[in-house]
Design a protein around this nucleic acid. Structure first.
Length: 353
DNA sequence: AATGCGTGGAC
DNA sequence: TGTCCAAGCAT
């Protein structure tokens, strides 16, 4: 609970902090350019926000530069081949984002004349754009005073207001608090400022309260509860699943790969043909007749909701033999870098690297 | 509305 | 090693 004697958090103080501490990032307009009236490119704001969903700035940076170099406009991205975009996204995770990214680029290009909608409600209709991303685009690209609520904002609000209700039940309460603070002036900078504060000062563990511009107005600081907030409902432990991956190499160097269905785990990505992944010992399911050799050890990988231990089998097959599943892809049409991480781990194990 | 969906870094 | 965590969305 907040003590009534405590000052209210001042959005302007946060903006001043942001002006002094904002990190230079490839999708941001620097202070000098902004002072000249430059606005961020909505395409770059949108692309960065999609990539940043549940993903750290450090992981996104190089992907963002690669994407904007190769596809500088939403029209260019809309015209890309699906396989090229999926390959470029490989390693970033949550692959539904990449499929929705392409869908969204094509909708914006074909149904909105290549211009991103500016209002929250229309932005929400775009594939892959939810409440957070719609608010972020409206605020950052168009200076619309929308309330942006991500994990950082939830944490900052839980501490400012010393809210002990556990997430996700606390979400509506924290959203109300965030809305009460959103300024009409520079809402885009403010939104990025609160998120930067959460990422660098108001961190999940060992928050640097001594450096916080909102310390005097923070109820959790006053009560000594900052480090234990926000409360979260406990999560379930992850089960372990087992599987087999079959890495067939044709004598000309081509690899046998399979495009995974759009829905579900690693949807739309290339992968090695294999068994199902289940808690019981996997059934043999070789995709082509061959002398299969089992590689010592296993490829281990952890997904959102289970651990995987993958047995890797390899075979060398003659030119004329036809696979039951998948298709051979010759180099350089295929690179291991095009694979999701679990498949690349299987490849690395087979190569002895 | 609870669940499924990746990955890499910090500790 | 394990656990938690990150600028969430779709269903």
């Amino acid at each position: 609970m907040r003590d009534d004697a405590m000052p209210t958090p001042d959005p302007q103080e946060l903006l001043h902090w942001y002006d002094r501490h904002a990190r230079a990032l490839p999708w941001r307009v620097g202070p000098a350019a902004r002072a000249r009236g430059d606005r961020p490119d909505p395409y770059r704001v949108w692309l960065s926000e999609i990539m940043l969903q549940q993903t750290t700035v450090a992981a996104v940076r190089d992907y963002f530069i690669a994407f904007t170099t190769r596809w500088p406009t939403v029209e260019a991205l809309a015209g890309a081949e699906d396989a090229d975009v999926m390959a470029a996204w490989a390693g970033l995770g949550y692959y539904a984002r990449a499929r929705n990214l392409l869908k969204c680029a094509r909708v914006v290009t074909q149904e909105h004349a290549g211009r991103f909608p500016q209002d929250h409600a229309t932005l929400l209709t775009l594939p892959g754009v939810g409440p957070y991303t719609a608010a972020a685009i409206a605020a950052i690209a168009f200076d619309d005073p929308q309330t942006v609520v991500d994990g950082n904002v939830e944490r900052v609000m839980a501490r400012l207001f010393d809210e002990h209700t556990p997430l996700p039940a606390a979400k509506p309460i924290l959203t109300d608090h965030a809305a009460s603070l959103t300024p009409r002036d520079r809402p885009g900078c403010y939104a990025q400022g609160v998120m930067d504060l959460g990422a660098t000062i108001c961190t999940p563990k060992r928050p640097a309260c001594g450096l916080c511009p909102w310390r005097r107005a923070c109820a959790a600081w006053a009560n000594g509860t900052a480090a234990e907030l926000p409360k979260k409902t406990p999560k379930k432990r992850k089960p372990t699943r087992l599987g087999i991956a079959y890495l067939a190499r044709r004598v000309d160097g081509a690899w046998l790969l399979e495009r995974r269905p759009d829905k579900g785990l690693l949807g739309g990505m290339l992968g090695w043909p294999g068994s199902d992944w289940a808690e019981d010992a996997p059934q043999e399911a070789p995709p082509i007749r061959a002398e299969w050799k089992t590689i010592a050890g296993e490829a281990r990988h952890t997904f959102t909701h289970f651990h995987l231990r993958l047995t890797v089998k390899t075979a060398l097959v003659p030119m004329e033999r036809q696979p039951d599943r998948g298709e051979f892809i010759e180099l350089p049409d295929f690179s291991p870098a095009d694979l999701p991480t679990v498949m690349r781990k299987a490849f690395d194990l087979a190569q002895g690297t």
